[in-house]
Design a protein around this nucleic acid. Structure first.
Lengths: 138, 138
DNA sequence: CCTGAAATTATCTACCA
DNA sequence: TGGTAGATAATTTCAGG
């Protein structure tokens, strides 16, 4: 959508609309512009949720672990969790064989107490749009 | 990045490069172009992974459940899983209060056998880039 | 399928209310 | 903050190998 078109929708001409977008980018609200791709159509049809219990909770261990896992391109998301699970990953790979390779790489990197892999059979919904509340006109 | 710049990187002038991108869009490989936004900066700092066991496994139940959950904007991802967990959600909300409202909405929609919420304390990595293997020159 | 150039459309800058 | 208008740079179409 062009800036002019966005401007129309919010009732603004293109210059002030463009300036607002520039500010959102300068402030880091907008982090990047990307093209979204169909996972299946590029042969990366397997999504896996991985729950990890660490055992070791030292700062040094965490740094090693965080750096190693972050560097793995198959890891799309990586969170430190509250509760019974310490870390949670969302991993995207081509198939089970590729996942097994990833899994061996993962458990070979640092010692882990427990790793549970849960496999997605069907993607029912997947969006990037965040639930922004509708603007209230003042 | 401009089409001309992409063309430079792959050793192509802008016209064929543009045509290839058009074809990727026509074929549905590229599904959309979006701007990515910093969750925390727009006040949606809480990510929750929700594991669901359904109990009921009929087609009718699934359709009702899938439609209802898909319609909830807080649900960013929604998968049908293999194994002990039947469904897995990734939910984004402002805070615990907002999550509680979402949770009540979720369990009030259809009967569910078990719902487990796991809360993210720290986002260590979150990308949209898929692990595309590097091109091999033929 | 590619190059190169022309036509169109968008972004971005300068300046004013 | 918002607006108009013009400069710049992108995308998209076209002619031709």
């Amino acid at each position: 959508m062009s800036v002019a078109e966005i401007g129309d929708r919010v009732g603004l001409s293109s210059t002030p609309c463009w300036k607002r977008i520039q500010r959102l980018e300068a402030d880091g609200v907008i982090t990047k512009r990307v093209a979204l791709v169909d996972q299946d159509k590029i042969g990366l049809g397997l999504s896996v949720f991985v729950s990890i219990e660490s055992g070791d909770h030292s700062d040094a261990w965490l740094k090693t672990f965080a750096d190693a896992v972050s560097a793995m391109p198959e890891v799309i998301e990586f969170y430190r969790m509250a509760g019974d699970v310490d870390y949670m990953l969302r991993v995207v790979v081509a198939d089970m064989r590729a996942y097994d390779q990833f899994y061996k790489k993962l458990i070979g990197t640092v010692p882990l107490k427990n790793v549970t892999s849960r496999f997605a059979m069907e993607k029912i919904k997947s969006v990037t749009a965040l639930p922004v509340p509708p603007m209230t006109v003042s």
